[in-house]
Design a binder for these strands. Structure first.
Lengths: 226, 226
DNA sequence: TTTTATCTTTATAAAATCTTTACATCTTTA
DNA sequence: TAAAGATGTAAAGATTTTATAAAGATAAAA
């Protein structure tokens, strides 16, 4: 059936070999990365349908790789680790892991948990690329295109757009947006928000003064619609 | 925060007691069932946000309870079982369980796995939408549609409509509405109310001068009917 | 250092919303 | 039915909120 793609991020050769054999004989397309840095890079360049992540990587701590991935990666992440402490498990799950398996693991169980994770995530968008009419937002590569031309956004503008897009259809209050993008101490600075919304509109809307995507909800906040 | 409801289906008194204490002290509303039959019944009558299911039930085999639930129940089901065989785990996951924990379990880990399951299921849970003939009111997203077209309401108009709808069928007095929407010091400003009711009717009624939804109760107040 | 990009602040015009007024119409009750 | 009271509605005035340009501040890069 499947042909889903899976990225394995693990530094142990034996584990990678075992997973490669197990997974590809079950019709998954497997790619591999041997440390956190290359894992993040591979994930960004070719976002897989699922990531299997080891916590004990040589360069970056696995929990940080996980957090980093979760800033934009929406598909399932299954953590595979020798660490069996309750704290590690809770931290990983709360950092956004979908499941946590302790090594040594049973391959049949791993496969069942992969199936479960994929089944549950099916209703999500499969890629980290959002597309609305003439604009394209690629979260993995931090790239926005309008009519296939790259739109240059600052970090803040990009996060703001990301927050709006990820909550498409929903009204986000001024204070919520300010808290998420600038931090708790900025919840009163609504003028910031106005300035940045205006900049964003100027860059992505065809008619900034009659916005199609970023709608104002007077006295409440803003809403992205498609 | 949460207040999600959890149904525990388990025949062991000690486990039920332990779960009840753990879960309710973490702000979950816990209900319990001691066998498969009553579990299925309770789930049907008051569908909880999540079910914790033991596989070793006295009447029906847990796997069958699981299959039965999955015919209609979409929220997360976490299986909790003494059975640690790979076959049991794979079967349960493939029967639609979201997760499988082996007893004895660590309560912190269980809580983290509950949070994860709820988090994952939330993304495709649709918010409560009130629907009356051709109008739709989505409170979570602050959205009102008439004949599938977005109706632009101001904050005050939206709160007023919300108050009326949430008390559908009931007469709300002028002073009650004024107190709820504008505050105690406005209870005498019935003219406000008239103006806003007129605006609301103009926006959501087919015939504002012969309102179908927002009815006037002369000398008392207003009533929303469907 | 100078340049450049970005963030922060200020000022002001424009738009949206709220409040008040005036008067027409409807309801209740004697 | 007529008078008194209550309600509906349009529109003007007042206030708040939002949009936008642009100047000043800051930090990173050449």
């Amino acid at each position: 059936m499947s042909n889903s793609s899976i990225l394995v991020i693990d530094d142990e050769v034996q584990i990678r070999k075992l997973l490669e054999i197990t997974l590809s004989s079950n019709n998954f397309n497997v790619t591999e990365a041997i440390d956190g840095k290359s894992g993040l890079l591979t994930a960004a360049n070719h976002p897989p349908d699922l990531i299997i992540l080891d916590l004990g990587l040589p360069d970056i701590d696995g929990q940080n790789v996980l957090k980093n991935l979760r800033e934009w990666y929406l598909n399932p992440i299954i953590v595979l680790s020798v660490r069996n402490s309750e704290l590690d498990i809770i931290t990983a799950l709360d950092n956004g892991a979908n499941d946590y398996l302790v090594k040594p693991f049973r391959t049949g169980e791993l496969l069942a948990r992969i199936r479960t994770a994929l089944r549950l995530s099916q209703s999500f968008t499969t890629s980290a690329v959002f597309e609305f009419e003439n604009i394209k937002i690629d979260f993995a590569n931090h790239l926005v295109k309008k009519n296939d031309e790259i739109v240059k956004l600052t970090t803040t503008e990009f996060s703001l757009l990301g927050l709006l897009v990820k909550n498409e259809g929903r009204v986000l209050t001024h204070s919520f947006i300010l808290k998420e993008i600038w931090g708790v101490s900025y919840v009163e600075q609504t003028q910031y928000l106005r300035v940045f919304i205006a900049q964003l509109r100027k860059k992505i809307e065809d008619n900034p003064n009659q916005p199609k995507f970023i709608k104002t909800e007077s006295r409440i906040g803003y809403r992205f619609i498609s």
